[in-house]
Design a protein around this nucleic acid. Structure first.
Lengths: 148, 148
DNA sequence: CTCCATTCGTGAGGTACCTCATCAATTGTT
DNA sequence: AACAATTGATGAGGTACCTCACGAATGGAG
């Protein structure tokens, strides 16, 4: 309308947005599918990473760091506990809290998972060269600007 | 390791990938939150759009077009039927099939929803100017190349 | 005209998130 | 000490997807 020509370029925000969401959905699916082979999940790995990086923490802190609702963390921790990758004990200093800690099993699952996840990500986003990655990174930074 | 310096630029595929997924998650959340006000959802709107564009179709076709598993379509259609936005009848020509059709209520919900969704998308991806959108679009096209 | 393979939809169960309502424990505040 | 407000975790219930297993209906081969 305003510019004329260049028809296929100049897509509107809504178009690109939908495409963006679709691409992310595909990527997420592919990654989780690849990681499932190792019996793991991106979300769970991320939680384990926090534990590995900070030592035992209570769930509220996990929620904070992961940017998730506390309820969601409870659920993931439950699963992880069932798999014996983490332990969960009531904090004696504040018995409302439950401190989550990494087990040995959890630690090795983490390294395996990180590797699998890394590979999966490389496999998908490796389709972009270094320059494109830098561009995409910049664009994502812009998107992160938006209030939400 | 290999290159040194330029730390913030030249991010690896895995870094950008995670950032990409995180951004998408945020965007998706924001959009659904905004649309929830109108009692709608992106997924449901997309399904209604297919119906509006093709007339009544059976669920397998919906799954095909939407790129989802048939089971997922069943679920969404059930919800939509409960809301009386679609009707679902057994096809007399092939009684395995159930033909899904848009109701009047569904049609108006669709227009309302499309508008809400469009706004939400504009609100988020409007943070990028036309050039950036075009760039992002190109990058997404590359990502779509990947087999999955 | 039988049977068998395929197709359609769904039951069951899983992961990842969310919100809202609750309960228990802690920390103010008089 | 006594009560109120806050905080930590969870129950209940929801949306969005998925896979796998299965029954019902079709359709094609013999």
């Amino acid at each position: 309308m305003s510019q004329r020509e260049v028809p296929s370029t100049r897509p509107g925000p809504a178009d690109v947005g939908l495409r963006f969401l679709a691409a992310a959905h595909r990527a997420r699916g592919a990654i989780d599918r690849q990681m499932a082979a190792a019996g793991l999940t991106l979300s769970r790995i991320k939680l384990l990473q926090v534990l590995a990086g900070r030592g035992p923490v209570h769930q509220a802190e996990l929620a904070e760091v992961l940017g998730q609702a506390p309820r969601s963390v409870t659920q993931t921790v439950e699963a992880l506990e069932r798999l014996q990758l983490v332990t969960r004990v009531v904090d004696p200093d504040d018995r409302r809290r439950k401190t989550v800690g990494l087990t040995e099993k959890g630690r090795s699952a983490l390294t395996a998972g990180e590797q699998a996840g890394h590979q999966a990500l490389e496999c998908i986003f490796g389709a972009l060269d270094a320059g494109q990655l830098a561009d995409l990174d910049k664009l994502l930074a812009c998107l992160e600007t938006v209030p939400t």
